[in-house]
Design a protein around this nucleic acid. Structure first.
Lengths: 189, 189
DNA sequence: TTGACAGGTGAACGATTGTTCACTAGGATT
DNA sequence: AATCCTAGTGAACAATCGTTCACCTGTCAA
């Protein structure tokens, strides 16, 4: 049986059932009648690092299961199908969210950050409990009002600068609380 | 044992081991000495839809395992911790990538789409094999050169319009191939 | 023709799975 | 004081898990 076909079948299984198949299930997937054949096949796939196994022998989902293919750049030309094989794969969840507990998603309204490429309707990935550095985009409460702005430290003074020349720079009068730092932007069409 | 604590322990286990724990493992996680207690506890968590089970009784990873919290909008004010409990969670992979096989990630170079909020260094999620509609952003080969532009249909004529007034509209001379449609944009800081 | 070898079958193995039963201890209610 | 209910223990159960063995085919090289 073709090894690539097997991996694809397992990928489909994983996507549908949200877990890795057992050896018997793999046998059923690719038409084998014996778990042993699967065992040998899996061992070879593990050797090639296309799959990996538990300490109990169970199959583990690797990057091939969750990820999305990563190709080159647009301007540099479109990669040919032959090159795609060599490319890496990436799990969006793992890539964008290193700390699940402290991270949340926020919908953006308004155009006050459009020069930063963040427009109305975008989703913003924010991480709580971090120390902001000058230049970071932050979710902040300034004088009892919530906004998303650039965090700029100018000597001892701290201001919030919008990413749009239409709006003024905000200087905190009585209070400034930084709730979270923006770690990523997501837009869906 | 606190039910929320249990779910969090399971979440940690899932994030570390990339699979759901067995009942014995759950028992070890939360300090039980009997699988039966776990069985009853899990049944209640399933009733509350905090977990779900296989047809074989095994635990399945739900949205709680993969997802990121979704909060409200920035301009509308920052939700209080009390509200967060009610909020939904979202798996980025499942949300952004409905068709894994046909989707890939591309790095953006240049500023030809900056008015669309796509700037240099962004990652773009593109889907192969779709019919583009007028107004979609596409990855295209025009006269043997690859670019990312708006796809605009004007009667029988088709042009590629950049998202930046600095650049001219592209009218295909000899050939225009649409390779993929841009489904999403991802930026990481 | 012979030998080696990869690929698959089928059956048995111990280990671990989720489920189920009987049972105990502690609170709360009646 | 008597009752009910929840929460947890411990042991037994069939089912399934991954592994391993002997065995049967082809195919390719010597």
């Amino acid at each position: 049986m073709d090894k690539e076909k097997t991996v694809k079948k397992i990928q489909q299984f994983y996507q549908k059932r949200k877990r890795m198949p057992s050896f018997s299930e793999v046998a059923e997937l690719i038409g084998y009648k014996s778990k042993n054949a699967v065992s040998k096949l899996v061992d070879k796939l593990v050797e090639r690092e296309l799959l990996s196994k538990d300490e109990q022998g169970r199959l583990l989902p690797g990057r091939l299961m969750r990820g999305v293919q990563v190709l080159g750049t647009v301007a540099a030309g479109f990669p040919s199908p032959a090159e795609e094989e060599l490319c890496d794969t990436l799990s969006l969840d793992e890539w964008l969210v290193p700390h699940r507990e402290a991270t949340f998603l926020l919908k953006v309204t308004g155009d006050s950050m459009q020069d930063a490429g963040i427009v109305d309707g975008d989703m913003v990935l924010a991480e709580r409990g971090c120390q902001p550095r000058s230049g970071d985009i932050v979710i902040a409460e300034i004088d009892h009002e919530w906004t998303m702005k650039y965090f700029v430290r100018d000597g001892a003074k701290v201001v919030l600068r919008p990413g749009n020349t239409k709006y003024p720079v905000l200087v905190p009068r009585c209070e400034l609380k930084i709730a979270a730092i923006v770690r990523g932007v997501i837009r869906k069409y």
